[in-house]
Structure formats: structure tokens, C-alpha cells
Amino acid sequence: MPKGRELVGLPVLNQERGEEVGRVQDLLYDEKSAQVKALVLAEGGWLQQPRVITFDKLQSRGPKTFTVAGTDSIDSELPAGLRRWQEIKGLRLLNRDGQELGLVEDLVVDLPSGQVKALEVSTGLVNDLLEGRREVPLTGDFKWESQGIIIW
């Protein structure tokens, strides 16, 4: 299963014309359903509106590219209530007793469903090098706060 960082930068192609409509700049994540709900495309200029494709409008979903039926699938407003992938990195992961388990480094995403199956967690540079980063499955209850995530 790919991680969020592997999806960022992938091209999004128009199926009708076979041309690239943009590249993934960010993922929009719904913490309640543990689902990637939309892709934000990299902007072409400094005053352009955001370009967003909701996950349900994608014709194919990775792992090397995404496709849409046409440019009418692209919206210019970010859906409300979703968290940006870039905002998730660095959040503290705590257990219910308040013990820190590490810092969230990434999401592990099932394609083509968009379901987030786990959080990739760092416990420090030395541990990451010696033992590798851990994946904490998103099973059970999670409470998302502005500064961290609490698992029950």
C-alpha cells in the first residue's frame, strides 16, 4: 500500500484527451471515515484558485497515475471539514494514558478505495534508522486534536 508521500507528485490525466491536467500537491483526509476524500492539484500560477478533484470523480486511482473523465471533474473550492495531508505530518500520537508513541510521518493508503489503513510513526531519527518506522493500524477509536492524535 502506498504512503501519502508516494501519491504527492503523481500526474492526473484527462481520459478523454490523454493529457495531464495537473499533479497531486496534497491529499484531503476525512478523519471520521479514515478516508482520502480529495486530491489538491498543484497550482499553475500565484493567483489561481485551488484545483480539487474529489476521490469519487476519479476514474482510476494509482498507484502510478490518476485519471479523470474530463476537466469538468475539477472543482475550485476545497471541501470543508477535511484535513490536509501536509498538516498531519508531525502530529504527536498519544495513547489514552497520555504516553507519546511518536510523531506521525505519513498515511498508509489503500488504493483504489482511498481508505487509510495505518499511520506511519517515527520514534526519532536513531530508532528510525535502526528499527525503521512503525505503522500503527487505524483500528479502534482515534481522537484527532489540533496538536495530536489520541488512540484508545
Results as ranks from 00 to 15, higher is better:
5 R>H: 10
7 L>A: 05
10 L>E: 02
11 P>K: 06
13 L>M: 15
15 Q>Y: 13
17 R>H: 13
17 R>W: 11
18 G>V: 06
19 E>G: 15
24 V>W: 05
27 L>N: 05
27 L>P: 06
29 Y>L: 02
33 S>T: 14
33 S>D: 10
35 Q>V: 00
36 V>R: 11
44 G>N: 09
45 G>Q: 02
47 L>V: 04
47 L>C: 02
49 Q>N: 14
53 I>V: 13
56 D>G: 08
56 D>C: 07
56 D>M: 04
59 Q>P: 07
61 R>E: 04
64 K>S: 11
65 T>P: 06
68 V>D: 09
72 D>A: 13
73 S>I: 01
74 I>E: 13
75 D>I: 05
76 S>T: 11
76 S>W: 03
77 E>R: 09
78 L>W: 04
83 R>H: 12
88 I>Y: 02
93 L>G: 08
93 L>I: 05
98 G>W: 00
100 E>C: 06
104 V>P: 00
104 V>R: 00
109 V>I: 14
112 P>Y: 00
117 K>C: 12
120 E>V: 15
125 L>A: 14
126 V>H: 03
128 D>W: 00
130 L>R: 01
131 E>C: 15
133 R>L: 06
135 E>C: 09
137 P>C: 08
142 F>Q: 14
144 W>D: 06
144 W>G: 08
145 E>H: 03
146 S>P: 15
146 S>V: 12
146 S>R: 01
149 I>K: 01
149 I>Q: 03
152 W>F: 14
